[in-house]
Write a protein that binds this DNA or RNA. Structure first.
Length: 666
RNA sequence: GGUGAUGUAGCUCAGCUGGUUAGAGCACGGGAUUCAUAACCCCGGGGUCGGCAGUUCAAUUCUGCCCAUCACCA
């Protein structure tokens, strides 16, 4: 039976860039969603930018733009980062939408009629200069316990104690620096204390992870407190209906953003909203979240939903945080790594794979250790998995014109692979990705061992063993196909490349019992570069450097980096045509290119062999730096360089069709 | 401070409800091999399973205490 499933990840806040910590969650969720789709289930994955609240408002002010402009920019940036990491949202929306406003208002009104909203006076710090109430994080002062200076209003980073902002010694507004005054105002409260019976029941039914259930018990024991859901103007958010200058606290409308994003999707592709969110909806609903926001998702959110006439989540899946080299991510250490900078140094799928080897269904922190990352990617992905195709495909091409045999040498091996499908899919379903990966790597070892035992390279020398050779290779390629299928939720882009190589339609789990026989495959091209420690070092350095220049870069160009137009014009860039390309003997990476630049020819030694084979380059147009001082290398003279993009995967830069060799570039 | 989680080979981690000589991958040493981007295959060294007590015929696995690390405190 086809399950109907709606999945969400927590909404990233529109005040900062996506970093590797965020990606743990999106990658975890995306693997699960892709797995569900491969199982043939109807599964939708929605998310949105979380756009409201004081930090967004203040940042927009600081940049001199409207909050709407800021959140539009962040939305574009976030979505582009997610897309690069192959996060396959069915909808990526915004909490600042008409749907979300309508739903938030309606939820509020229904809670009001259920008599779950109360109004109370609250005394808070107020910045008399900025004329606004200050959230705890925007008040700084001396810690009342350990007397450390310059601590936030809610807790001390030095001694770790938590307190009320009013206890701070010599409090200051972090925005204006003036001393805040105490001022009272009317606040709206959601009477969570009235919901504890319902929530206790819900906590049991939702089958929370043991750690989460434990935490819930702790909260129940302490007694649930009412929740302040209003904020005073100025505030960027939705005004509360029937009030003047009172706004919904961002945490009220943020989870409603899940519904709003789905509503927007539902309209577009004609889904029934009620089947997913109605009070008695039967479809499944899952939220993936970080452990820090369990309180909001396991208490406020189900209560809000239930008492406003909607369904509650089927399950809530919490995960731990990311540490880097065993320590909390730190901007000054350069381990606060942004998604974007990772992409400049590594293939995104290497991170997806690494996280998959670490992720379990427990709320445990996972560690990014670069030594470990490099060894996992190089030995598992390149050395074990890809190696299977790499060491056999050549024979299929050369000896059998790319065609697989119609019979198998050892069907038993492939049966073992097929039989592993339920083990692997159970592990994915249970979010025990590390278990799935262990099993897949065990199978990869079996495949490599099988090839080793049968030694196709020996058989290839004896023509009388052709039939057996053909069958052995066919088993190997089929093993590779099944491994690809099993890894596909984790490595979607690579799986797509491999499907093109095997010339087969997109695979799903139902394909785990069929084999490719009497079928022609394409020539093999290498699928993944090894990763190197050097790149990790560059990545960390880039993030450390970025810290110091972030502020100035947003406001004015950095003088050290900026160049004048005259500086640029000193570089003589020309369109060039590759007349010939050949491998430089004795070198790992170099190709010798003979380039036509109109009036003359030049020789360039270029380190692009890892990404381009010479036979593919002849007649291509490229861009070359013509006035570079010629460099004498061990293998001869190089009279310039050709422009490329990327560090590990290298891409030649090419002019548009019609350009002629020798044309100057300005 | 309160609460929780974790602590198994150099590194990253498996070890289900307690039961024969505690496992894997990587790293390391030796061998074999050359099809594969030095990848792959075989063999090996290496662990008082954080410490101390207790329950038990038997504890890495259960209980208590201690130590260390990490996280959370709406």
């Amino acid at each position: 039976m086809t399950r109907k499933i709606l999945v969400t990840s927590a909404l990233p806040y529109a005040n900062g860039s996506i970093h590797l910590g965020h990606l743990v969650e999106y990658i975890q969720t995306d693997i699960w969603v892709r797995f569900q789709k491969m199982q043939g289930n109807e599964c939708y994955y929605v998310c949105a930018d979380d756009t409201h609240g004081t930090p967004v408002m203040l940042r927009a002010q600081k940049e001199g733009i409207t909050p709407e402009t800021l959140i539009a920019r962040m939305h574009t940036e976030h979505l582009s980062d997610f897309t690069s990491f192959h996060i396959s949202f069915d909808n990526y929306y915004s909490t600042n939408s008409n749907e979300n406003r309508a739903l938030s208002e309606s939820v509020f009104k229904r809670l009001q009629s259920a008599n779950l909203i109360s109004i109370r006076e609250v005394e808070q710090f107020y910045d008399p200069e900025k004329k606004m109430f200050l959230p705890d994080r925007f008040i700084k002062g001396e810690c009342p316990k350990c007397h450390a200076k310059d601590q936030y209003g809610d807790s001390c980073e030095v001694c770790g104690s938590a307190y009320d902002p009013i206890e701070l010694i010599e409090p200051r507004s972090a925005i204006s620096g003036v001393e805040p005054v105490r001022k009272s105002s009317e606040h709206y409260f959601f009477r969570l204390s009235e919901c504890s019976q319902f929530l206790r029941k819900y906590a049991t039914e939702a089958h929370l992870q043991p750690e989460a259930a434990h935490k819930m018990d702790e909260w129940f024991e302490q007694g649930l407190k009412d929740w302040d859901i209003s904020r005073d103007a100025p505030y960027f958010g939705f005004e509360i209906p029937g009030t003047h200058e009172k706004y919904f606290y961002v945490w009220l409308d943020a989870p409603i953003g899940y519904m709003a994003s789905f509503m927007n999707l539902a309209k577009r592709i004609s889904l029934d909203f009620g089947e997913y969110w109605g009070a008695d909806a039967k479809n499944e609903l899952y939220h993936f979240i970080g452990k820090d926001i369990l309180y909001f998702h396991a208490l406020f959110w189900p209560a809000t939903l239930h008492y406003s006439g909607f369904r509650t989540p089927t399950r809530i899946f919490a995960h731990g945080f990311l540490t880097v080299d065993g320590e909390k991510m730190s901007k000054s250490r350069g381990t606060f790594i942004t998604a974007r900078s990772f992409l400049e140094h590594f293939n995104p799928e290497t991170l997806r794979y690494y996280f998959a080897t670490k992720l379990t269904n427990h709320i445990e922190d996972i560690d990014l250790n670069f030594d470990n990352f490099i060894s996992r990617v190089n030995s598992d992905l390149v050395g074990k998995f890809i190696n299977i195709a790499s060491r056999t495909a050549g024979f299929i091409q050369k000896q059998f014109q790319g065609k697989l045999a119609s019979t198998l040498d050892n069907p038993g091996l492939l049966e073992t692979f097929s039989k592993a499908a339920p083990i692997i899919s159970d592990a994915y379903e249970a979010r025990e990705y590390s278990r799935a990966i262990r099993e897949i790597m065990r199978l990869s070892d079996l495949a490599n061992l099988y090839i080793d035992e049968n030694k196709p390279w020996i058989m290839a020398k004896n023509t009388n063993e052709d039939k057996r050779l053909h069958e052995v290779l066919t088993v190997a390629i089929n093993a590779f196909r099944l491994l690809t299928l099993y890894l596909k939720p984790v490595l979607p882009a690579m799986a797509e490349k491999i499907e093109a190589f095997l010339q087969i339609p997109p695979m799903g789990f139902k394909d785990c019992n069929t084999y490719l026989l009497d079928h022609t495959i394409a020539p093999y091209e290498h699928l993944l570069q090894r990763v190197e420690m050097e790149n990790a070092e560059k990545l960390i350095k880039a993030n450390r450097d970025n810290l110091t220049s972030t502020v100035s870069r947003e406001i004015m160009p950095d003088k050290d980096i900026s160049i004048s137009i005259e500086d640029f014009q000193r570089i003589d860039l020309r369109v060039a045509q590759i007349l010939s390309a050949e491998i430089v003997e004795g070198s790992d990476k170099l190709l010798r290119l003979i380039l036509d630049i109109g009036e003359s020819k030049k020789t360039v030694l270029s380190g692009i062999r890892t990404s381009y084979s010479p036979e593919k380059l002849t007649n291509r147009l490229v861009i070359m730096v013509n006035n570079l001082i010629p460099k004498k290398m061990r293998f001869g003279l190089s009279e310039g360089m050709v422009l490329t993009a990327g560090d590990t995967d290298i891409f030649l830069i090419a002019p548009d069709i019609g350009a002629k060799p020798g044309m100057k570039i300005h």
